[in-house]
C-alpha cells in the first residue's frame, strides 16, 4: 500500500476545499439554510405536523440528503475531472500507485468534505427548527455511507465526463429532481396511489426515508430495505469505478 500517495491525494484535495471554502462549504450551507428558513420556519409554521413531527423538523433529513448527495457527487466528479482537464492527471497515472489507492485518496477526500458540510448543516438546522435524533449511530452510519457511495458515483461521472457540461448533467438533471421527488419535502403517503407506486422506483426515496427513520423513528419504508439499497448502490459504484479505472477508460490510451 502506497500510504504516502493516498495521503498526498487526500490532503491535496482537502487543501483545495480550504482554498475554495466559499464554494465548497459556505455555498451549500447558505443555500440549505435558506430552505430551513423558508420551508421550515416561515411556511412550516402554517403546516400541521407530519408523521408526528413539525414540518420544519420533518424536512431536515431530506434536505440533509439533498445536500449530501449533490455535494458528494460534485466534489468527487470535479476532483478527478479537473486534473483530467488541466492535464495534471499525468502524474497520478505515472506514479507507483494502484487504482484502489487513487480511489481511496480522491473519494475519501470528497466524502470528508460532504461530511463536514453535512455536520455544519445539522448544526445550522438546530438554530431554525427543533431537532431530535432517535438513533444517532444509525444516523452517523447512513451519513458516512451516503457520502462514500455518492462520492464514488461522482468519481465515476468525473472519469467518464469529457467536458464541463457532461460533468453537470447528472447532478443537475438526475440527482436534484430525484431528491426533490423522493420525499425530501413531503411523505410519499401524501401522494395519490399511482404516484406513490411510481415513487418506489426512485432510489432516493429509500435513502431519505432511512435517514428520516434515524431521526424520528418514522419512515415510509422499512429501514433494512433502505440500508440494503444504499449498500447495493455502493457495490455497483465500486464495480463501476474499478472497471473504468482499471481499463483506463478516458484517461489512458
Amino acid at each position: 500500500m502506497n500510504y504516502y500517495a493516498v495521503r498526498a491525494i487526500y490532503l491535496h484535495e482537502m487543501h483545495r476545499m480550504w482554498r475554495t471554502i466559499f464554494q465548497s462549504i459556505m455555498s451549500p450551507v447558505i443555500s440549505t439554510s435558506l430552505y430551513f428558513i423558508v420551508f421550515g420556519s416561515v411556511i412550516g409554521a402554517m403546516i400541521p405536523q407530519v408523521d408526528g413531527v413539525s414540518y420544519g423538523s420533518f424536512i431536515v433529513p431530506g434536505l440533509l440528503m439533498l445536500t449530501l448527495l449533490t455535494q458528494s457527487v460534485s466534489n468527487s466528479a470535479f476532483g478527478i475531472f479537473f486534473p483530467k482537464y488541466s492535464g495534471s492527471i499525468y502524474e497520478v497515472l505515472a506514479a507507483p500507485i494502484s487504482s484502489f489507492e487513487i480511489i481511496v485518496g480522491f473519494v475519501g477526500a470528497s466524502a470528508t468534505k460532504s461530511l463536514i458540510v453535512g455536520v455544519i448543516i445539522l448544526v445550522t438546522a438546530s438554530f431554525f427548527v427543533e431537532l431530535s435524533i432517535q438513533y444517532p449511530l444509525l444516523m452517523i452510519f447512513l451519513l458516512v455511507l451516503t457520502c462514500l457511495t455518492f462520492s464514488l458515483f461522482g468519481f465515476l461521472i468525473g472519469l467518464l465526463s469529457n467536458n464541463f457540461e457532461q460533468l453537470q448533467v447528472v447532478p443537475l438533471i438526475i440527482i436534484t429532481p430525484l431528491v426533490f421527488l423522493g420525499g425530501s419535502l413531503y411523505t410519499i403517503e401524501m401522494l395519490p396511489d399511482f404516484w406513490q407506486k411510481v415513487s418506489y422506483f426512485n432510489p432516493v426515496v429509500y435513502l431519505i426515508n432511512g435517514m428520516r427513520y434515524s431521526f424520528y423513528g418514522v419512515s415510509d419504508i422499512n429501514i433494512w430495505i433502505s440500508v440494503i439499497s444504499l449498500v447495493s448502490f455502493l457495490v455497483i459504484c465500486i464495480f463501476g469505478v474499478a472497471i473504468v479505472i482499471t481499463k483506463g477508460y478516458n484517461i489512458k490510451s
Binding site: A5, A8, S86, S88, E91, A95, P96
Partner: peptide, 21 residues
C-alpha cells in the same frame, strides 16, 4: 500540465507524496 491555483512548493511536494516518499 500543472494545477494552476496551487503554489509551487505544494505542487512539488504533492508529486513527492504520489511517488510514495
Amino acid at each position: 500540465s500543472l494545477e494552476t491555483f496551487e503554489n509551487v512548493f505544494n505542487n512539488v511536494s504533492y508529486t513527492r507524496g504520489l511517488y510514495g516518499k
